[in-house]
Amino acid sequence: MSDIKKFMFVNRKAPYGTIYALESLEVVLITAAFDQEVSLAFMDDGVYQLKKGQQTKGIETKNFSPTYRALEGYDIEKLYVEKESMEARGLSEGDLLVDVTVLGKKEIGELMDQQDVVLSF
C-alpha cells in the first residue's frame, strides 16, 4: 500500500463504564493491519484506560488493559497523554501501564491538526 495516512485515535472515555474504550482499541488494531501511521491520544477520562493494576474479575468483564502493551508489536509506538487531563485525575506517568509521551494541551491540539484522519472515541 503506497498511500499511507496519519490516523489519530482520540480516547476520552474511561474503560468498562461504556464500550468506547474497547471499541477504539479494536479499530486501532484493525487500522494497524493496513499499514497506516497510527497514533493514540488519551485525554479526559480516557487517561484511565492506561491505569496500571486493573483487575476485572469482580465485574466479570474482560480486562483489555494488557492489550495496550501489544501495540508496540503492531508498530504503534506513539501513545500521547494530555498532561492536564492526567494531572486533573491525580495520576502521573508512573501510574500508566505502558510508555507514553506526555504532552501539554496545546501540543496535543497541534498534533490533531497534523493528522489526515482523526477518530474520536
Binding site: 488494531l29 494497524a32 483489555f64 494488557p66 501489544a70 508489536g73
Partner: peptide, 9 residues
C-alpha cells in the same frame, strides 16, 4: 500476556 490473538504480520 496481551489478551488478544496477534495479527499474522
Amino acid at each position: 500476556e496481551y489478551q488478544i490473538a496477534p495479527a499474522v504480520r
